[in-house]
Design a protein around this nucleic acid. Sequence first.
DNA 1: TCTTGTTCCAAACGACCGTTCGAACCCAGG
DNA 2: CCTGGGTTCGAACGGTCGTTTGGAACAAGA
Lengths: 222, 222
Amino acid sequence: MTDPHPADLEPEEVDQESQAATKNLVFAAAERLFAVHGFQKVSVRDITAEAGVNLASVNYHFRSKDALLLEIFRRRTAELNRARARLLHEASDQHQGRPPVRAILEALIAPPVRWLDPKGDRLISVQFIIRARSEGTEEMRLALRNDVSHLRRFADALLIARPDLPPEEVYWRLHFVLGMIHNNRFAEFDRLNTLSEGLTREEDFEPLIKRMVDFAEAGFSR
Amino acid sequence: MTDPHPADLEPEEVDQESQAATKNLVFAAAERLFAVHGFQKVSVRDITAEAGVNLASVNYHFRSKDALLLEIFRRRTAELNRARARLLHEASDQHQGRPPVRAILEALIAPPVRWLDPKGDRLISVQFIIRARSEGTEEMRLALRNDVSHLRRFADALLIARPDLPPEEVYWRLHFVLGMIHNNRFAEFDRLNTLSEGLTREEDFEPLIKRMVDFAEAGFSR
DNA sequence: TCTTGTTCCAAACGACCGTTCGAACCCAGG
DNA sequence: CCTGGGTTCGAACGGTCGTTTGGAACAAGA
């Protein structure tokens, strides 16, 4: 008697629009609730109620609550990593395989910040990813090791772009840039807007990308 | 019949070494477990078991689990804010009330990074604070509004130090610096050490403070 | 039409949660 | 010695959690 769960034989991200409507409803509702309220505060009953499906749907289509969470995390981080890698690849092509620091930083920063735009449909996803980084389960820590292999390409590019710097200095500065990116949470934006009395409220996110890249590039300038 | 809970009549942080040993045991165990495992994953039973006290101790000495969490948060953030404010005040004294950007950033960065030193007894506390920022309850969000009033002193100092910059630019850069600071979590350090293959492992944290202040000051340089 | 496999559903299971309760305990003040 | 307020204790309460179950509903091929 083999395991009848359809989640086991999915290669990557099928049923985008296929007949498995319930699975997609659960996926979307879970991502939305997790992104807003956090992982531990959202119950399976919250998810299925939000999706308008039966309680058992989570354990049927995904194996467990944790597996659902991990699947969302995997798909979204893969998408983000792909977008970043594409920009880095383009920058590498335009600079004979040795992109300057600014282009590397832009490839790292631009995708997750563009996703913050409420006019798109990515805002939920990027908030989910950011939250996963600080609240993730033990299994997601392991999944983050793959993310390290993704980051290594950026670290290597930076090491090549700044061969004059001690390697540990490059790593630390990369760490600082990642901190800037990961701090773009709802709560932090609200805090900043309260502090600045609304001066920092953004409608277009390209200026924010420029601000961040400017700041990060300046940090790398010495 | 008035409320018999001793938690209600404590001014700030008495019973450091007083006869209420159980309360201190609970406080310390809760802070430690929360800092390591997060708020939602730690139960009252975990806390009391770690502290070696009875299960009901949490609800007796503090009113509830949330109230315990909030009390830890309040005490530690107050201590951190005091340390930062003192440094800012000293810098203000040394520069005729107009401290330069670097001194302001150092007052913001140095205290929480010094607390990261495992040789001290503050490592748990700073990890707790960082975790509280992203996993805090609703009541702690309100407590963070006081933190905004604390941050305003730093924002104002920066606005005075850089009157040539548009105010929103100053606020954004302050936001970036805070992101750098809040990213100093256990998991992120591990990730960085994996990525750098141990190159970034620190024993002394003063060089890290210098690195961070250098990076942040450079970001403010233009 | 009957069969077969997939999906959905209501209901329940056992485990763990935060909190409460009343009795036991301790220890100064009489 | 006794008394009484502060503290600790074991035990239990009601509730919510993630997960499981067995059958109903459904669609498609024989």
